[in-house]
């Protein structure tokens, strides 16, 4: 592989080196969280976590475990930087991002440390492109304090059934209301749009329901505009876990299978909308 031989000499200078035979394994999962330009990268020996936030109300995290990479070397316990996600995605698709079988872009992603650009070596069919993306001061991601011990309700669904609902959601509704309950309607998505309201009910014994663990009836509203980007993650995923905690915060965890059959996770946290009188 030309990439490895070429940059062998520089390897020692980098605090982070991550290689992928197929850059799509990274670009796909990053697409699932692309709704703002700025992405906070934090790398640990376990892997790479990419965070995107909106209005301090929504946070999306993509986790790419170190095993996904063909090579993953990190010289510090934790390496953090911030880059423009749109630019990064454009670079990863610099060869057109062909989905044809047998054609893939190899990636070697290197970072020298604070103040240095993120360097990408991309190779396809013997052609190598080097991209340097300026890094920014990493911001501290918002801590949503979503703790599994505070989870009141949790369901795991096959994504297929939610995809349909999300693709049909009435976008004239300002909010998406999620009801989870140990009794009927069990799991309900509701919208309140210009022309009336709509409810999508999933019974707890549905084939699509992999896990149903609801302890208390909870109804929360979330801004449709905030939840909209999560559809991208939903589209890629095969399973989704929907959890709410005692404060009504929403956690959506998506299990995404990449081209090579490996599993990655994408997670969305969303604040509930302010309490409004029931109509």
């Amino acid at each position: 592989m030309p990439l490895s031989t070429q940059s062998q000499g520089d390897a020692e200078q980098y605090v982070l080196v991550a290689c992928l035979d197929n850059a799509r394994n990274l670009s796909n999962i990053l697409k699932a969280i692309t709704f703002k330009d700025h992405a906070i990268f934090s790398a640990t020996p376990n892997g790479l976590k990419v965070t995107v936030e909106d209005s301090k109300c929504l946070q999306a995290n993509a986790f790419i475990q170190s095993e996904i990479f063909q090579e993953y070397t990190i010289k510090e316990d934790s390496v953090g930087f911030q880059v423009n996600l749109t630019v990064l995605l454009d670079c990863l698709n610099i060869f057109g991002g062909s989905t044809a079988p047998g054609v893939s872009t190899a990636l070697r992603m290197c970072y020298k440390g604070y103040g240095y650009p993120l360097t990408l070596f991309l190779e396809e069919g013997g052609v190598v492109t080097v991209c340097k993306i300026n890094t920014q001061e990493p911001e501290e991601p918002v801590d949503f304090e979503f703790c599994s011990t505070n989870v009141t309700n949790k369901v795991i669904l096959q994504s297929e059934s939610l995809k349909e609902a999300f693709s049909e959601l009435d976008m004239t509704s300002e909010v998406l209301q999620i009801t989870m309950s140990p009794s009927q309607p069990y799991f309900r998505l509701s919208t309140f749009g210009n022309s009336g309201n709509a409810h999508y009910d999933y019974p707890k014994d549905s084939d699509m329901m992999e896990l149903f663990k609801c302890t208390k009836t909870q109804t929360n509203r979330y801004k449709m505009s905030l939840l909209k980007p999560s559809t991208k993650a939903l589209a890629l995923s095969c399973k989704v876990s929907v959890r709410t905690d005692s404060r009504g915060f929403l956690s959506l965890q998506y299990l995404v299978r990449n081209d090579d059959g490996q599993i990655c996770f994408v997670e969305y946290y969303c604040c509930p909308d302010e309490e409004v009188a029931e109509d």
């Binding site: 609902a165 009336g196 709509a198 999508y200 009910d201 999933y202 019974p203």
Partner: peptide, 19 residues
Amino acid sequence: RLTFTLHCKHGLMKTHNLS
């Protein structure tokens, strides 16, 4: 309201209450 209820596979039920 005019209610359209779609009974789908896997028990999913879609209810639209239209004005």
